[in-house]
Simulated assay, not measured.
Amino acid sequence: MSFSKEAAMRTEAGTSSPDDGSLLHEAGVRRRLAVFIRRSPLFGVGMLLCLSILMIAAFAPLIAPYPEDAGTTVRFASRLQPPSAQFWFGTDEVGRDVLSRVLMGTQATIMMALTVLFISVLIGVPLGVIAGFWKIGMLSGTIMRVTEVFLAIPSLVFVLSVSALLGPSLPVTILAISLAWWTWYARLAYGETLLLQQQQFVDAARVAGASSLRIAFSEILPNLTSVLLVKITVDLGYVVLLGASLGFLGLGVQAPTPEWGVMIANGRELLPDAWWLVTFPGLAIVITVVAFNLLGDGISDFLSSAYD
């Protein structure tokens, strides 16, 4: 038998139903979401932008007008052409279509960010739950002291050091950011676990004879979903920004792979004449970061309103 926080709340209110396993019926959730989007248009904008970015990342080779320009294609006859009907975002120093490279760069950027967050959640959340649930003992203390050591080092400094030590590449970028990022999820899971284990649904599980391991990972862990969803959504934008910063500094993804930070670094040498080389990759970064922040803030507000 599984005791969730929502079920305990319904039981206290006398509204629990044997065939209702969630706080809201599915139709009610859709209704509430539609009303919330009407009241918070920025949330709708963020959701639309994020869906568009994910679709572009998934189908970039099919959308890009010149997908071959993601590699080492050279067209000196059309180099450094400004935006036009043929090349909407202009061309770079070797004649490659900037629009195609920005679209293809979305794929590499989003894949990198999703992989980093997957690894961070996979490492940080279980460790945080373990440290929070078994908060007395050497294991819990060791986990949190290691976490605090990593948190004491600025993320950018740590990531730059790892990238410089192991050599710039996409796998190293993912590894370096993941090593810096898991600590935030461990700390978050630790704090939430300390709060959740004091709730009545945990006491009910103990009375029912559930083991500590089952309570930690079958009762407490599922109730971290909402707060983790908000953090992951917001962190996507920050990881994209950090990955682009590494690419700009030459310690991330390397050319000729299309990556927004690398494109900006290459284009800055041709400013202000070839302004489009920096402008469009920069706009892609700004739109992506803003979109995921709007979505994360909206999800947080929506989940808060659902419990009111």
Rank of each mutant, 00 (worst) to 15 (best):
V149S: 07
S163C: 13
L151S: 07
V149K: 05
M138L: 14
I153S: 02
L139Y: 04
I136P: 01
L165F: 13
T147N: 15
R145S: 03
P171S: 03
W134P: 07
K135Y: 12
M144Y: 04
L156D: 06
L160A: 14
E148W: 10
R145M: 07
G167D: 01
I153A: 01
S169F: 08
R145I: 09
F150P: 12
W134M: 14
S169A: 12
I143T: 13
S163L: 02
T142G: 14
M144R: 11
L160M: 15
I136E: 10
L160D: 10
V159P: 00
P154R: 11
L151Q: 06
M144S: 07
V149Y: 01
M144C: 09
V157S: 09
V149N: 03
I153D: 04
G167I: 01
L165N: 02
S169G: 11
L166G: 01
L160H: 06
S161W: 07
L170F: 03
V149Q: 05
F150L: 13
L170K: 07
G137A: 10
S169C: 12
F150G: 10
M138I: 12
S169N: 07
V146H: 01
I136L: 11
T142Y: 05
S161H: 08
V157C: 10
L166Q: 04
A152K: 13
L165V: 13
S163P: 02
W134D: 06
L151N: 01
E148L: 14
S155N: 05
V157Y: 04
V157E: 05
V146L: 11
L151P: 03
I136Y: 15
V162E: 01
V146G: 03
I136D: 12
G141T: 13
G167K: 03
P171H: 01
I153Q: 01
V159K: 01
P154Y: 08
A164N: 10
I136R: 14
T147K: 06
S140M: 11
S169H: 08
M138Q: 11
T142H: 05
V146A: 08
S140G: 15
S155F: 05
G167P: 01
V162T: 04
I136S: 14
I153L: 15
T142L: 15
V159F: 00
S161T: 14
T142E: 03
K135P: 03
L156I: 15
V146Q: 04
R145Q: 08
L160C: 15
R145N: 03
L156H: 09
F158K: 08
M138H: 10
V146S: 06
M144G: 09
F158R: 04
S163Q: 01
